[in-house]
Structures are given as C-alpha cells and as structure tokens.
Design a protein around this nucleic acid. Sequence first.
DNA 1: CTGTTAGCGCCTTCAA
DNA 2: TTGAAGGCGCTAACAG
Lengths: 363, 363
Amino acid sequence: MKPKVTIEDIARLAGVSKATVSRVLNERSNVKAETRERVLRIMQEQGFVPSLAAAGLAGGRSRLVGVLTPPFTQPTVPEILRGVAEAIEHTDYEIVLYSTNAGQSPTTIVNRILALGLTSCLLVIQPGPLTPRLLQLASQGLPVVVIDDQGPPPELPSVGIDNRVSAYQATMHLIRLGYRRIAHLQGPAEFRCAQERYQGYRQALDDAGLPFDPALVFNGTFETASGRACAVALATLPLTERPEAIFIANDQMAFGFLSAAEALGLRIPQDLAVVGFDDIPLSAHVRPTLTTIKQPFYEMGRNAVELLLSLLHGPATQPVAGAEGGYQPPIRIQLPTRLVIRESCGALTLHRRQEQEHSLSDE
Amino acid sequence: MKPKVTIEDIARLAGVSKATVSRVLNERSNVKAETRERVLRIMQEQGFVPSLAAAGLAGGRSRLVGVLTPPFTQPTVPEILRGVAEAIEHTDYEIVLYSTNAGQSPTTIVNRILALGLTSCLLVIQPGPLTPRLLQLASQGLPVVVIDDQGPPPELPSVGIDNRVSAYQATMHLIRLGYRRIAHLQGPAEFRCAQERYQGYRQALDDAGLPFDPALVFNGTFETASGRACAVALATLPLTERPEAIFIANDQMAFGFLSAAEALGLRIPQDLAVVGFDDIPLSAHVRPTLTTIKQPFYEMGRNAVELLLSLLHGPATQPVAGAEGGYQPPIRIQLPTRLVIRESCGALTLHRRQEQEHSLSDE
DNA sequence: CTGTTAGCGCCTTCAA
DNA sequence: TTGAAGGCGCTAACAG
C-alpha cells in the first residue's frame, strides 16, 4: 500500500552505497560534504524517513523513550505529559506510552517494556516508592529518569521540587497571616514527599516560635476521602482546641476537606484557613478557591526529557559495582515552586485582594 | 547489560526450531499440544518476551498503534486516553503517542508517523476536520479510526456520539422545565458537531411548537472567551428580548458564560438557565454546577481501540478504486450520551433536588 | 505438524 | 572517505 522508501532506494538514486547513506543519516563526520548534500537532497525529494524499528533492531538502541505513567485521569499527569510530549517533539525520538492502571504489578510492566526491546530508556512518572526491579535495571545501566510529583526517594536521576521548602513556605504564609494554631493533614508515610512536607511544616512552626501540637497533625492518604475525614475530626474538636488554619499536604485532600467543611457549616477561610499543595486544575475552581503551592508540572516534564536524553547521549556513567571512587548521588533537577494565593487562606479578605487570581479568566 | 532472551534460546532449550517457537508465539494452530506447552513453559522460565521491533520488521505489520492526540490539557483528552490505554492493555499491542501541539501541521505529523514504519494503524483523536493526507492514506488501506469528540465528518471509521439527538435532549430538557425563549451558543461552523448540535436545538424547538428566533443564536468558537462574549451580549439585550434559558454547545464556553454572568450580576439559573455539552471534569465543580450532556469519553477510547484492532485483523476491506458494488459508508460506533442534571438549569430548585449529583463526593 | 531458508531495513564491522 | 558483507530477532514462505 505505501511503497516505503528505503535506504537502498536512496543509495541507488544517489549512486552511493547503503553504508554511506546510513552514515549521512547518523551524521557521521566522515562523509565528503558534496556527497552528503546530494544524499540529503535525494532523501528530501523521496520523502525518506528511516524506520525506527529497523534502526533499533540493527543498532541496538532505539529512538523510543518509554514513558511509564499513572492513569491520565490523575490530575497531575496531563500537564506533565504535555511537557514531555513537547520536549520530545524537538528531538527525533518518539514516545511509547505505558499506562499503569492501578492494581497491576509495576514490576510486570517494567519487564514487559524492556523485554519488548523497543525502548532504550525510561521516563517514570510514578507516585510513591519505586519498584525494586526498576532500581535494579537502572543500576545495570538502563537510563531512567523519575518525575516525582509525589516524591519517590531520589535513588535515580530525577526531576522534582523541594517539598520541604515549599511546605515551609505554605505554612509560613499562614503564620504571616496571623494564624497561631495551625494544623497539618499529612500524606501517607510511604511517600517521601509526605514526610518532607511534614518536616517543612514543623520547621516553619519552630522558626516562628510557635508550639507544636501533635494533636493537630492528622494522617491522610492523599485522597479526597481522607480530607473529608479530617474535616469531620476537626469539627468534633472542642472550640478551644480547634486550629485556626490547616496546611493540607495535597490539593486532592483539600477538596475533600472543603466540601466536608461546607457541609459541616465550617466557613473557609473565616472559621478556618486552608492551604493546599500541588495546584492542579480544579484548585482554581473549587469554592472557595484554594490557596496552594504550585508545582511546575509542565516544566518537570520538559526537564525530565532533557535529562533523560542527556543521560542517553552522555558518556555511559556506569555505576561500577563496588566502585571505590566514592558514591556520588544521582542527578537531581529541582524546580522552583510558587505559592498561589487564592481565597481559602483568607489573605484576600484580610488584605483586600492584592494578589487575587481570577478563577476562570485565565483559560 | 541485559542478556535478552531470544527465540533462538528458547528453541535450543526446547529442542525445536525457531519457526516452531514463532508459531507458538503467534498462536498458530498447527503445533502439537505437547510441544506447545513445553515451549510455553520454557518461555515462562526464561522470562521471554518477543521483540516487537523485530517482529514488526519481519512480519511487515507492527504491534504498535499510533495515537494522534491534541494536547493532554484539552479537558476531554485524558478520559479518552484512559480508555484507549486500558483497552490496549488487554492486547499485545502498545501505544506510540504523537501529540499534536497546536500550530504544527497535522500533515507533517502524519507523514512522520507513517514513514517511521513503526505503526501499522492509527487512532486519531482530532477536533475538527481531518487532514486530507489522512483521508488519502486511509483510502490506500491504512487502518484508521477517528474519535470525534468534536465531531469530524465520518469519512473514516469512527467512534462518537449522536450530536443531534443529544442536543435535542438538552434543549428539550429546558423546554420541559417550562422555559420558552431559549437561546443557543453554537460552535464554529467548521465543526460538524457544532452544526449537528444546532440542528438538534432547532428540532427541539420545532417539535415543541416554539418559535425560532435567529437573534437568539450566537456564534462561538468552542473556547471560554466566546462564552463570556455571549453572556455580555445577552446582558445588553433589552429585558423583554432576553431569553430565559440557553443551550451552550460545549462546557468550555459554558464556563466562560457562567463566570461572565456572575460578574454581570446575572443569576444562574434564576435569571437564566444554562445547559452545556460534554461533561468534562470541571463541569461538576464550577458554580453553579453545570447541567450538561455527558459524553462517554472513556468508552469512546475503549471502543475505538477495539474497532481499530478489528479492522486490522479483519479481512482487508480494501476500498477498490472505482468498485461498482455500491458505496458503503465506513463503520461508525455511536455511543449513548446522558443528560446530567445539576444546578445551572434550575431543575433542582424547581423540582426539589430529585436527581442531584453530589459534586465532590464521587471522586 | 515441523524444520529449512530467506529476508524485513538498518547499522556495523571490516577491508579498500 | 567509501563499499561489501554480516547480522539484529523475528516471520514467511517453502519443503518435508
């Protein structure tokens, strides 16, 4: 149906050997300029595009980057993928997508991916801890970059944010607004980012000379339901023990909190100020709109791709087993976050809307 | 680094020829049951996974489906992709993702995709009209399935909804609620779905014996801004000419409409009832929550994959040039939509919340 | 039912 | 700087 133009065709038309065409393709230097241009021109004319499949087979390394993602409906994912896709587009690589639908072993998928022999490197968007299998492969030399929107420990090259500092800023924002009793709804302990955000919260209290009250720290799961549960727990607290504000470790839980609070007759921010973490699309649209820490998801995607490709092209920094030369930690790109001030923290009502974000107007 | 297990290895260990192993792999029937099981067992033991790249090269057809998508941040996309990914997962195919970032020629991308020789079929999620190049390729025998969330003309096998009927239901819902003067904000004329939704609107008015007033039909772009513009236009109308309700051709525009209406002091649904179209995630969260037609995006993704694979496996229904046998239209899978009743249409306030959807509680 | 023989389109030695 | 030959891992004909 489609008479694919092959290297052989080009070679014949250009009057050179296939090997030479191949050299031109791979931008080898050892081709006479004149020849190169002729070949290039003919490739143009014929609309030649090399077969990635064959190139991968023959050359060993393919031009496909495997991208391992959680379900697309997880709110942080689309933005990250947009960044990834855009970065890839400027290269001659393509994306092979492996979506990990909840409930299937990540190890299985990883095995499948690699064994397929399609992809020569992996970009992992994975909430929570990494599969041992992945670590093992990486240590064997497979280029892997992790985007830790939810914060896996950086045992691999990774792109992410400084959760501790960001949480510190979020908490400090509440403190500056004059709140004294500040609660925290934290994420599950398996997530390193949950711990880090907790630490940032603690640190802010300390630095402000505020007492830490363990009774004000609630355990959550990063899911909406636990936000609701937390609101209920707070509402049952005696008025004197009730906090004036709460820093919630992700927006998803904050949504649950807001909706339950509304149902419970708890006014946000008048009765209780709320700051979240992530800034996913909904955050600008819930009522009240959510003050939160904005993670630069798009940029994370872009940076991850760049890092991955640089790993791929750069010298094979093979982690020699038992190397004595001192352990050097994997590369980490840390992107800045930003506090987005909206209604839920009370800053707007307190400070007459100095930095208000128009909710729907920016789309 | 990773000593890939090949068919050759399996063949040796099982004491058969590579061809036989291949037969087992491809589930050919002509293998003795006993042999098959031995081979399968050994493949298990060795953790053998065939190389898609090689298989594609050798066999001519690859096991990769190319998926052409708009940017992931377009709100309808994640759900569709989720469906696609989930359907693919049950097969031995993989997804190669081509994201069409706005502003780049679709034709270029399509060419690139095909020439790569990676994918043997294409799933296109494309708002608006199809590239001529795509049509041409399809007519040459390339299996293509289109998901028309925004409604391209079904010149190719496609999965979508009945826009006309759905729009009819939306409008009829408003009519049943007692509204008489009903406006319509339509999408751009290039989108067939925009025309169809308009037709459904007209039809509903006709069937209800309501007069059609061209002054109540506004032109939109399917984007937020045009929703705002429409609200402004409505607000400037003399009170007597103002409609009591409006059917807006997609939710994105409805959001713009709602936010502008709020700013203009127009109360929804008291002053004006609104019904949208799509039911994207935000629709349940804007204020007031949006009554709208729910498109089954997830199912569309799933069905599209199934259709595509059936096309791939089924008999090559090659559209023979100039065949006399009468033109038969391409397959179309039409999925049912559903009217989701929320606040913006006034039904809840009128009929004391009979079908209310809890906004945040279902996540 | 099974083994043998050619390639798929490309890259990578080698030798020239 | 170039050409010729071999093979990546698999499938598709053939024979048997």
